[in-house]
Simulated scan of single mutants.
Amino acid sequence: MARVSVSVPVRWSDLNAYGHVNNAALLTVLEEARISAFWAGLGSQHPTAVLESGPGASQHTVIASQRIEYRREIPHLREPLEVSLWIGRMGGASLEVHYEVLPPSAGDAADAGERLPYAVAATTLVLVDAATGAPTRIPPAVREVWQRYTDEPVAFRG
């Protein structure tokens, strides 16, 4: 299974009064990972970053739904969180992006199995025509790249 791994720093403003990442701030963490993973032209090195970005893009993405399941508190960390992303489902004009928000990688592959996620999430994105706002099909070249990054959806608890 191929996944995209994105490092996202925890900012001081992401913390709440209890010293851990605020639940609403996690939406921004997911957004930053998603932009890095899928939008071209922003300096991303990810092979999945193939969508046009910026005001002149012919297609935009809109969020149709999001679901987050918090598994444990995310403390303030000096090292960036690791967000692992993949596509759980790809339709004609939409896709479900799935995530695991993980502690920073220690760089040791043997350690990877013991890193429990802080949270898991899913976002449904719809590609729309920038001029009309109408849903538009995922281009074949984009679909071909993304197909390699599809896997089973996140298993939510409830």
Rank of each mutant, 00 (worst) to 15 (best):
I68G: 04
Y99A: 02
E114N: 13
W39R: 09
P80T: 00
T150N: 01
L30G: 07
S5G: 06
A109K: 11
S58R: 14
S65F: 06
M1I: 08
A24K: 06
A64V: 14
G43W: 09
I138Q: 03
D108H: 11
G107C: 08
R89G: 05
V126P: 09
T136E: 01
E114K: 12
A57N: 01
Y70C: 03
P80I: 03
R143A: 15
F38N: 00
D108Q: 11
T136N: 02
V83E: 06
V62R: 05
D151E: 12
G43E: 04
L95Y: 10
A141S: 13
G92S: 13
G54C: 07
S94M: 07
P9W: 02
S13F: 04
P140N: 08
T48I: 01
T61E: 00
G92L: 05
L51H: 09
P75Q: 11
V83W: 11
A49W: 05
P9C: 02
V97A: 15
A2W: 01
P9H: 05
S58T: 14
E73F: 00
N22Q: 11
Q45T: 14
L81A: 11
L95N: 03
I74P: 04
L102N: 08
E73H: 03
F156C: 10
A24T: 14
A25Q: 07
W12D: 08
V120M: 06
E52G: 08
Y70F: 15
L95H: 07
A106G: 15
A106Q: 13
D129Y: 00
S94R: 08
T132G: 06
A131H: 01
A109V: 13
S53G: 15
A130S: 14
H76W: 15
E73P: 00
G54N: 07
P140Y: 11
A134Y: 00
L102W: 06
S13C: 11
G107K: 06
